[in-house]
Amino acid sequence: MTGWALANFADSLLTVILAVWVADLTGSAVLGGVTFAMLGLPALASPFLGHLTDRVSRRGMLVVAYMIGAAGLVPLFWVEGPTGLWLIYLGTVIYAAVSYVTGACQSGLLKDTLPGSALGRANATLSMIDQVFRVALPFLGAGIYVWSGMRPLLAAAVAAFLAAAILFASVRVQESRAEPERAPYGKALLAGFRHLFGTRPLGTLAWSLTVAMAAIGLVNGVAFAVLDHLGVPAAWLGPLTVGQGIGGLAAGVLTPRLMDRYGRVTVYATAIMLLGGSLVPMVGDSVALVVLSQPVVGLAVTSAIIAFVTERQTVTPPRLQGRVATASQVILNVPSVIMTAGAAAAIAVIDYRWLILLTVLLLLTTGLTTLRHLRRLRLPPTGTT
């Protein structure tokens, strides 16, 4: 847990600040925005990373990944101006790839070390760690950057990656053995997607989550339009994100109990519908309602992801965990990125409120559809089997 906390700190600390740094060095908001594309680029390699994770020691792969992550940031200490832009972009791609490796390895290690009944609580605890950093790091990172520049942040990230590597190198874990690979490489590479969408009820949740993340992308694309309509500065986006982090912390406490009582699929579907309802205030004119709705947004999103991840880990064989985890990362990120770009372009011709209402409709529909599918499958009421 300490190792994962350190790695989470390292791969969260620079996510926004790297783009700000590029914009400051080059004077170009466009080049700063390209940094976010660099952060998403490793998603294209996620099937390969997942396949590799299922073939080697996951603990060893984490050690190597964190050392590479630290090494990729070291050249950035010598960047002084726009001529070092290529180094920042290269370091950003390496930096972002570490989080994909962590996600793939983490799923398999949890499956190997914990009984199924403990997976939900473990995922909730990891989610709480993530939310704590989500609340604290935007303020901490921005403050250090303004007062001291980029080097202290780079040093902190490098130190955290190296500390995580040392901790994982010292831990002894009885890992499941890699099974002989009989399928052709291409088929084995896509085995995670086949399992994710072909296993019941996991497949229903995966399709539902794909739609939900695309819907969330619509909202992300109109976020600044909402703030402009409310008459508040764009800088408010940071505090609103903190409100979502507070809701995510609450989800880490509540979701395991709810899954034990009502089942993973029920909690997931209910959270998706709650998310749809929590977005309605963004259509109105009340700043107070939008602010108050943000913890509910964070609660709903985090609860849905905890329930989905726990269901995925429970029904996936140990040596398929890496590929299924990276397939999940694709559906968590790619639909949202595509729809965010589409929404940002669409608001030039469409009132943003119609896009929000479309998002609400999609979320409510997919939540209700998932619940109906649960009834047809006649799944047990608890999430432990």
Rank of each mutant, 00 (worst) to 15 (best):
R177D: 08
T199M: 03
A188N: 05
A156K: 02
A206D: 00
L154W: 00
T199I: 12
A163D: 06
A215S: 09
A163F: 05
T199S: 13
W207C: 02
A155N: 13
A159K: 06
F161L: 02
T199C: 01
A155I: 09
L218Y: 07
A164P: 06
Y185V: 14
F193Q: 08
L189M: 02
A164Q: 01
A183Q: 15
P201Q: 11
Q174D: 14
R172T: 15
W207H: 05
R200W: 15
V158N: 07
G186S: 11
L202W: 05
A215E: 03
V158S: 14
G198T: 04
F161P: 08
A160D: 08
A159P: 10
L209V: 10
T199E: 11
T210Q: 04
F197C: 04
R200Y: 14
A164Y: 01
E175N: 07
G203R: 01
L209G: 05
T204K: 10
L218G: 07
Q174P: 01
V211L: 09
A206S: 15
V158F: 10
G186N: 09
A160W: 10
L196M: 11
G198P: 04
L196P: 06
I216L: 13
V219C: 00
V222C: 11
T199P: 01
Q174H: 13
A212D: 01
A206H: 05
Y185L: 15
L190N: 00
L218C: 07
S176H: 11
F168K: 06
G217I: 06
V173W: 11
G198L: 04
S170T: 15
A157F: 01
L190R: 04
A165P: 12
A212W: 03
A178M: 13
A206I: 00
P184G: 04
P180L: 05
S170H: 12
A178I: 06
R172L: 12
A191E: 15
A165F: 15
E181I: 09
P201K: 03
A155V: 02
A188G: 12
T204M: 11
A160V: 09
L153R: 03
N220K: 00
A183S: 15
W207Q: 00
L196Y: 00
L167N: 11
R177Y: 08
K187M: 08
A178V: 09
L218H: 01
F197K: 04
G186P: 13
G198M: 05
F193A: 13
A163N: 00
F193H: 10
H195E: 14
V219G: 09
E181Y: 03
M213F: 14
L162F: 14
A163Y: 05
A163T: 00
A212T: 15
S176K: 12
A155D: 13
L218A: 13
A212L: 07
F197D: 04
